[in-house]
């Protein structure tokens, strides 16, 4: 299924990504291990054991990425054309990552606004922002989504399920 040419270029990218991922895992394990020094008594044993395991696995990944001519692959011949991995394993180049990171930043901004201006105003602002970013220029459709989604969430969560959504300073009563 995969043409030889693309699979080779993908392999080298894979290897590079594996090296970076492995290094990140090693760093993460070391930092967390450092935090575990303040744990008292037996509370530390299990987390340290798990972190050492993660450290070792991370090192194996780095070494393999540096040495192996082939990307990490199961030896039993399971084909790599596992669709999920095919999509997911693509490179982390700047152009690919830009849009997802913009979405993530918008979600972060949304979460930050929740408690400041309240749920419904921040949801309207977020939806307006993300719909614009997703190039929805159909005003009627956009307004419809904003209105229907807010009503559904209001009905389902606030009215039926009795969830107190954040009110924020604008509408807060306490």
């Amino acid at each position: 299924m995969i043409s030889t040419k693309s699979s080779i270029s993908k392999q080298s990218r894979y290897r590079n990504a594996d090296g970076i991922a492995g290094s990140a895992i090693v760093a993460f394990a070391i930092i967390m291990f450092a935090f575990s020094f303040e744990f008292t008594g037996e509370a530390a044993i299990w987390p340290r054991a798990v972190l050492v395991l993660l450290l070792v696995l991370g090192i194996v990944l780095v070494v393999r990425a540096g040495r192996d001519p082939k990307p990490s692959q199961r030896t039993d011949g399971t084909p790599q054309h596992d669709d999920q991995h095919n999509i997911d394993g693509e490179s982390l180049s700047r152009t690919v990552v830009a849009a997802p990171m913009a979405v993530l930043l918008m979600v972060i901004g949304y979460a930050a606004l929740l408690e400041i201006i309240g749920f419904f105003p921040s949801t309207v602002a977020f939806l307006a922002g993300i719909l614009w970013y997703q190039r929805v220029r159909n005003i009627v459709a956009a307004l419809g989504i904003v209105l229907v989604l807010n009503l559904v969430i209001y009905y389902l969560f606030v009215f039926e399920l009795n969830v107190q959504l954040p009110t924020g300073i604008l509408f807060g009563e306490g």
Partner: peptide
């Protein structure tokens, strides 16, 4: 239910008074 409704209605219509 009613209490939830009342509270929520205040929110939706943007009643600022109590603050």
């Amino acid at each position: 239910r009613r209490s939830a409704l009342r509270y929520g209605a205040g929110l939706a219509s943007g009643v600022l008074g109590p603050t």
